[in-house]
Design a protein around this nucleic acid. Structure first.
Lengths: 165, 165
DNA sequence: ATCTTTTATTTCATCGATGAAATATAAATT
DNA sequence: AATTTATATTTCATCGATGAAATAAAAGAT
């Protein structure tokens, strides 16, 4: 249906890169769909995407700790939001906030044992649905998709560094 | 960086489908990035994503018209939002609203000549950036990406029809 | 010692999206 | 004719995200 639509548009505007436009639309649709699926799975745990992401970043760090500034970068969030996110996670006892020893301007954020348990408990129930998402994908498909998405991500990064005049 | 993160998590939780989780994260990142890029390109025209999508759907229809109900489906929007979107586009003279002849409960939404001109003017400047996004993609890459995204979209549709107990 | 820079938080204001429920109108069903 | 269903709009309320600017505290530079 979308295919026909883009087909008709590209008949009127022939310079249009139709295959690429189709891919954009597909990516947007799949991205939104995935986002929805994720938020859906997070809802029962009263987490939103950025809180979850922040928690997972901490969980996956060798020492389980980071600083607000770092987390802003990794989770692509503004400082204001990161303060909020940290507030929420601290209140639930999943992370702690403390002053850094070396540089006392910095705040050390650290996942708690309860936070680790929480992650270990909430992740496994997601696995079946994740697996289902890629039903019918051969190993080769997955490698290919990964490669192409990375290339796309790279190109998009370039683009966002070059906002047109 | 994300790769290492997921790698470490999957060492602690070995049942995790790590490659699939990586693909999810990639998709989410690329999706968000694309969304941003799109909104960025739409901003100068004072359009948001759903208004643009709605306008493009109308533009791409053979007769340039549709109804609110249909548009809700195609643009995955609630009825309330579609009313708002239509309001905005009518106010700018890009579409018209009129009663349907056959079924006077329905409202006929139709793109205006000004709306068509608007689309034809705003699209071409986007093409270079779209092309840049897929720099380094062979025709085969594009076909493959399209195929895999469609498969993924299909699987996600299945999933959303099966909200777990 | 003073000024500048870095880091994080707080305050405040706004924007945008969303959606449920009530309303209006017309078609379909009985 | 009366009731039910379909379609669209309006009203209202809320939620969430966002971000700029002011503030605070500490490190670094002069």
């Amino acid at each position: 249906m979308m295919d026909e639509g883009i087909g008709r548009v590209s008949q009127i505007i022939p310079q249009m890169p139709a295959p690429e436009a189709r891919l954009c639309r597909l990516m947007l649709m799949v991205g939104a769909s995935l986002e929805e699926e994720l938020e859906f799975k997070l809802k029962p745990h009263k987490l939103n995407h950025s809180e979850f992401l922040t928690l997972m970043i901490l969980y996956s760090r060798p020492d389980g700790s980071s600083t607000p500034g770092e987390l802003c970068e990794f989770a692509t969030q503004g400082a204001t939001n990161m303060t909020r996110i940290a507030n929420a996670l601290v209140k639930r006892g999943l992370i702690t906030r403390g002053a850094s020893e070396e540089d006392r301007r910095r705040v050390l954020i650290r996942i708690t044992p309860a936070g680790r348990r929480f992650v270990q408990k909430m992740l496994p129930p997601m696995f079946p649905r994740v697996a289902t998402m890629f039903a019918g994908f051969s190993d080769n498909d997955k490698r290919n998709l990964s490669r192409l998405l990375r290339k796309l991500a790279h190109n998009l990064d370039q683009l966002s560094e070059t906002p047109p005049p």
